[in-house]
Amino acid sequence: MNAGPHNWTSFKEFHVNFQPDHNANTILIKPEFFNEVNDGARVTLTFHFWSGTQIAYHVTKTGSTVTGTTS
């Protein structure tokens, strides 16, 4: 099952659910994504980059708190 908005697809909308911050070298996952994640759910996000690199990141939402770790 896919998490977040439009759970019928694993692809999330760029700049609506996430966006890169090139200056900080980070990816911001926006509240719009987490508004539709079930409380207590552990979600695995896989980021695919033009270089071919893939990074898996695990997030867990508990109430209004979100924690995350890399694989």
Rank of each mutant, 00 (worst) to 15 (best):
L28H: 03
E36F: 15
E32V: 07
T60P: 00
T9F: 05
S51W: 04
R42S: 11
S51F: 05
F11W: 08
K61H: 03
Q19H: 07
K30S: 05
L28D: 03
E36C: 09
N38W: 05
F11S: 10
T46C: 03
G68M: 00
W50L: 14
H58I: 13
T70S: 11
N35C: 08
A24D: 09
T46Y: 01
F14L: 12
I27N: 01
R42E: 11
H48G: 06
I29S: 00
N25G: 07
T67Q: 08
Q54T: 13
V37C: 01
H6F: 11
F14A: 10
N35K: 15
G68P: 01
E36S: 14
F47H: 06
K12G: 01
L45T: 04
A24R: 13
E13G: 04
I29C: 00
A56P: 02
T62Y: 07
E32A: 15
A24M: 07
D39L: 09
T69E: 15
F33I: 06
G52N: 05
N25F: 09
A3F: 06
H6Y: 13
G4P: 08
T67K: 10
L45E: 02
N2W: 15
H58R: 15
T53V: 12
D21K: 01
A41V: 11
T53M: 10
A3Y: 07
M1A: 15
N38T: 14
H58Q: 15
Q19E: 11
T44K: 13
P5K: 06
W8G: 06
V66I: 14
N2E: 13
S10F: 11
S10L: 08
F11V: 10
A3S: 12
G68R: 00
T60D: 01
E13V: 12
T70E: 12
A3G: 02
T69L: 11
K30H: 12
F47Y: 11
F18K: 02
A3W: 09
A41T: 14
N25M: 12
V66N: 01
D21E: 07
I29M: 06
T60L: 06
F33R: 00
I27F: 03
T65N: 10
H48P: 00
P5F: 02
T44E: 14
G52R: 07
T70Y: 15
N7P: 14
N23V: 08
R42H: 09
N17C: 15
N38F: 11
E32I: 08
A41I: 05
E36Y: 15
P31H: 07
F11M: 08
T9Q: 08
T46P: 00
A3P: 04
S51E: 12
I27H: 00
F14S: 09
T67Y: 05
M1K: 15
W50M: 13
G4S: 05
T46A: 02
G68D: 01
Q54G: 04
T9P: 02
S64V: 09
Y57S: 00
K61F: 01
V66G: 00
A56S: 13
F34T: 01
H58F: 10
V59L: 09
V16F: 11
G52F: 07
G40Q: 07
G63I: 05
F18C: 02
Q19C: 06
K30M: 10
H48S: 12
T53N: 10
D39E: 06
F47M: 09
D39H: 08
N2C: 09
A24T: 03
D39F: 04
G68C: 01
N35I: 05
K12V: 05
N17I: 02
D21V: 01
